[in-house]
Amino acid sequence: MTAPTLRGAAAFVQQVRAAEQHLSGADPVMAAVIERHGPCTLGATRRDPFHTLCASIISQQLSSKAADTIQARLMAGIGAGRRITPPLLLAASHEELRGYGLSTAKARWLRALGEAAAAGTLDFRALGRLDDEAAIAVLDALPGIGRWTAEMFLMFALNRIDLFAMDDVGLRRGVAMLYNRGRPLSDARTLKITRRWAPYRTIASWYLWRVADPVNEIWV
């Protein structure tokens, strides 16, 4: 499923409501979480695909506050308004990108991403037509983008409805808090729990982030 159009956005909201009903019926623990946190707002904000990937790279291994600071410096420095674009990014030198607070590797990865998007080798429309695993494979092949970043992109830029990122610390903490009194769970036990949420594991993930870090609004 690609990011929803104006008409598609309404359909996506209906799908999210259906997901909440399914999750509540399939899992009493999740039903209580949905009752406590209210309707899921995933999809309420339309996310530009290129900007979302850039933001994901910037935020790797940083706190939300540090990532926000660096992203704000970068956007101000390259003259970006509400989003980072390939032409604006490529107009900045590697040294300029480093001066905004990016590491050497992240500056290099962002330029490579801009070059791929500008050349058309990274085609977001084509990416949106691929199934989840094929899209993840395309993104994973890009410098600086691993499976976790690809999964976050699919969830929040392409509105894919049935993903659970096993490597996400917040999601694993949320599962542990809800199902094992905060003690870490094995991959096998985690997968067994998450299977009951299919085909709406992305929506369940949204609620797990609320459980694990209720003050962080990054995933709204």
Score class of each variant (00 low, 15 high):
P143Q: 13
T5A: 13
L127H: 10
A91Q: 10
E20M: 13
I70N: 03
F156N: 11
T52R: 04
G146R: 09
A188C: 12
L110E: 14
M75C: 05
G114F: 12
H51F: 04
P143N: 11
G114T: 14
M177C: 09
P184K: 02
R210E: 07
R201D: 08
N159W: 04
I161H: 04
F156I: 03
A119C: 14
L127Y: 08
S93P: 07
A126N: 12
R196F: 01
L178Y: 07
L163Q: 05
F50V: 12
G43I: 00
R196W: 01
W109C: 11
W109I: 08
A135P: 13
L74P: 05
A67N: 02
A11G: 13
V13K: 14
A126H: 12
F156Y: 14
D27R: 11
K192W: 08
R111D: 12
R172Y: 11
Q14M: 12
Q60C: 00
E217K: 15
A11K: 15
G174P: 06
E20S: 14
R46M: 04
P39E: 02
A80G: 01
I70T: 00
G170D: 01
G77L: 00
T190F: 06
H22I: 11
A135Q: 06
V175D: 14
N180P: 02
L90T: 03
N180K: 10
S56M: 01
G81H: 06
L97I: 11
S93M: 08
V211G: 03
P39S: 09
L142F: 06
D213G: 06
L208K: 06
S63N: 00
A118G: 06
N180F: 04
T52L: 02
L191R: 15
R47T: 06
L23D: 07
A10C: 11
R147V: 13
N180M: 11
L23P: 10
C54A: 14
Q14D: 15
G128D: 14
W197T: 00
R111C: 07
V33I: 08
R181N: 14
E217C: 05
A118N: 06
E35F: 03
P86S: 10
A9P: 12
R111P: 08
G128C: 11
I218M: 03
A157L: 04
P199K: 06
G79Y: 03
S103K: 05
S64P: 00
G79K: 04
R196G: 07
L171K: 04
V13F: 15
T202I: 02
W219V: 11
R17V: 14
L102M: 13
